[in-house]
């Protein structure tokens, strides 16, 4: 069970004067059950890349294999892939359209050609997964708050029971509480339901805290692909492409420079606390 991208290239408006190569020779393997953080400067090709994973964009050259099957084969069923690889876009609340929350969440599974009871069961489970209670089921999605709308939209994708869930900046424009709720929910989906997660984010803290592996993109190619610790060790390179390390990594660096024998590669606050405590012998 995996996604393999093999030398994927993508060119926008190919053949015209303003063609832009959005992806350059991207090769990446995503295994079952991983939690991957995808980071990169605005315009680095992150969003373009994730749209390839469920076949919304077709690579100009290169191949993508889902569980061993080439998704560009003529007999490959794209519709099944859309159900298997769930993609939550930026500001997903803008896609809501039904008269009530429950109906909107039913839209995704409804397109998969399932029975009515199965559709409703899935919608119910998805809404529970995102933490929306029964009180909200028959409310118009347009009457909800921003964070609630976003959760409904995510439930709309979850109801298709994807094996891989791709979230493109799911916390953009949310307050800290809303952000923690969404990311906590994503982690629960990963830990409890065993869904493979690909999280596109601009927050170094978030990817350091949640992801097992970080993929760094710059100008359409993959620059780094490693554990958070290894990636953020190279923070000087990250700064050159407009990114950074988590703030706590900087503090630890400074502490080390000042002569405190702490672990300078700590990427989360918890790790840093542990390391500092150890230095003071507690």
């Amino acid at each position: 069970m995996s996604i393999i991208c093999d030398h994927v290239n993508y060119i926008y408006s190919s053949g015209t004067s303003d063609e832009i190569q959005a992806l350059k020779d991207v090769s990446l393997q995503i295994s079952d059950g991983e939690f991957i953080g995808l980071i990169g400067h605005t315009g680095s090709g992150k969003s373009t890349f994730v749209q390839h994973l469920n076949g919304l964009l077709k690579a100009t050259s290169g191949h993508i294999y889902y569980n061993g099957a080439d998704i560009y084969d003529s007999d490959f069923k794209m519709k099944d892939l859309r159900g298997k690889v769930g993609l939550v876009f930026q500001y997903p609340e803008h896609q809501l359209f039904e008269e009530n929350v429950f109906k909107d969440v039913c839209f995704g599974p409804g397109n998969l050609g399932l029975s009515k009871s199965e559709i409703e069961l899935r919608a119910y489970a998805a809404l529970k997964d995102v933490g929306l209670g029964d009180d909200y089921f028959y409310v118009s999605p347009f009457d909800l708050s921003g964070g609630q709308k976003r959760r409904v939209a995510i439930a709309g994708v979850l109801a298709m029971k994807p094996e891989v869930l791709v979230l493109d900046e799911p916390t953009a424009g949310l307050d800290p509480e809303g952000r923690d709720e969404i990311l906590g929910m994503v982690r629960r989906l990963h830990d409890e339901n065993g869904i493979t997660i690909i999280l596109v984010s601009h927050s170094m803290e978030d990817v350091a805290y949640y992801a097992d592996r970080i993929v760094v993109m710059d100008r359409g190619s993959i620059l780094m692909n490693d554990t958070p610790k290894e990636v953020f060790k190279r923070y000087r390179e990250l700064e050159e492409i407009g990114l950074a390390a988590p703030q706590v990594t900087y503090i630890m660096q400074r502490l080390q420079e000042k002569g405190l024998p702490v672990d300078a590669s700590a990427t989360t606050v918890a790790e840093a606390v542990q390391s500092v405590m150890r230095v003071f012998g507690r």
Partner: peptide
Amino acid sequence: EETDKIMKAQQARGAD
């Protein structure tokens, strides 16, 4: 652009 975005978002939910 908005049309394109919403279209893709609904296609991601299996819309045809």
